[in-house]
Simulated assay, not measured.
Amino acid sequence: MRWPLWLLGMWSLALAFPRVGVHEGFTRLVFDLPSAQAAYRMEERDGLLTVLFPGLSAPAADLLVNSPEVASVQVVPEGGGVRVLVRTRGAVEVRTSRLQDPERLVLDLTLKKGGGAVPAPAQPKAQAPKPPKPVVLLDPGHGGVDPGMVGYVVEKEVVLDVALRLKRLLEREGIEVRLTRDRDAHLSPDKRADLSMRAAMADSSQVNLFISIHVNASPTRTARGVEAFYFGQAQDPRILAQVIRENGGGEVGRRLTEEARSVAERILSDIVAQANQRFSQRLAETLGRKLSQATGSPYRGSFPGDFFVLRYAKVPAVLVEIGFGDHPAEGRRLADPAYRERVAQGLAEGILAFLAQGAFAR
Results as ranks from 00 to 15, higher is better:
V159Y: 01
L160R: 06
D161T: 03
D161E: 11
A163M: 11
R165M: 04
L166P: 00
L166D: 00
K167F: 15
K167Y: 13
R168H: 06
L169G: 01
L170G: 00
R172K: 14
E173F: 03
I175N: 02
I175H: 04
E176Q: 10
E176D: 14
R178A: 02
R178E: 09
L179C: 03
D182L: 07
D184K: 04
S188V: 13
S188G: 08
D190M: 04
D190Q: 08
R192I: 07
R192M: 15
D194T: 11
S196A: 08
M197V: 14
R198P: 02
A199T: 00
M201Q: 15
A202C: 10
D203V: 01
S204T: 08
N208M: 05
L209N: 00
S212W: 14
I213P: 01
H214R: 11
V215H: 05
N216A: 03
N216E: 03
A217L: 06
P219H: 13
T220F: 14
T222R: 15
T222P: 05
T222F: 10
T222A: 12
T222L: 12
R224W: 08
G225A: 11
E227V: 09
A228T: 13
F229D: 11
Y230S: 14
F231Q: 00
F231W: 01
G232I: 05
Q233S: 09
Q233P: 04
Q235D: 14
Q235L: 13
D236R: 12
R238C: 00
A241N: 12
V243Q: 02
E246S: 15
N247D: 10
G249V: 08
G250D: 08
V252R: 10
G253Q: 00
R255S: 06
L256D: 00
L256C: 06
T257L: 14
E258C: 11
E258N: 14
A260C: 13
A260W: 01
S262T: 09
A264W: 00
E265D: 13
E265K: 15
I267L: 10
I267C: 04
L268W: 13
D270F: 05
A273V: 04
Q274D: 00
A275Y: 07
R278Q: 09
R278V: 03
F279E: 15
Q281I: 04
Q281M: 06
L283A: 02
A284K: 13
E285Y: 01
E285P: 02
L287S: 02
L287D: 02
L287R: 01
R289N: 04
Q293I: 08
T295S: 11
G296R: 07
G301V: 07
G301Q: 07
S302E: 10
S302H: 15
P304Y: 13
P304E: 10
